[in-house]
Amino acid sequence: MTLKTFGLDQFGFLVFSLQWTILLTVIALVGGGLLGFAVALARTAHLKPVRIAAATYIQVIQGIPVLMILFLSYYGLSLAGFELPPLCAAGASMTIYASGYLAEIWRGCIQAVPKQQWEASESLAMTRLQQYRYVILPQAMRISLPPTVGFAVQVVKNTSITSIIGFVELARAGQLINNATFQPFRVFLAVAVLYFVVCYPLSQLSRLLERRLHAGSSR
């Protein structure tokens, strides 16, 4: 058997597998966004037990490795009797991981809205729901954009961990090609370049949004 070398075909396979990385990132951000939003609201709720439960959830998720979340959802789902493809375990774990961090980011953004805004809207006889809908969340969303985009970079990078349970995304595709070509330096460098091509623009976008936000508020 002759060894393949790392050529255009192999690079094409890497680029092709990038779509799974991106799909997983989108799942994590949408799922984690919904769950994280609920936790962020709970974290800023009136009832103390609700606040404590949300704070505990955030502390636990941020205090355990993403790899453990992945293993627990992988084995947990199969234990519960679901015969699911790795994509489901990967998507579930990335969702849980993202929710813990997004909840904390968004809590900060909700609390960054000045207290007077709450008082003013209350004096207009708005219900709590109306306060959130028309006064607080629109302002919090503006503040939350830069750190949320910044976190998306972390999610893209951390989807590589799902390769450990055999989900074929970019990092796993790199391993597969390395097994066929035995040119690890070239292969993983190419993998790193592809991740960089996705992550760097997002990082810069986050930085740009951050600068624009501060420019707006200092005027």
Partner: peptide
């Protein structure tokens, strides 16, 4: 900061011997 830790490990562990 814009590449995954796992890939960095692969480069160090599998790439450096090359």
């Amino acid at each position: 900061r814009n590449t995954p830790f796992l890939v960095q490990l692969f480069i160090v562990y599998f790439g450096l011997p090359g």
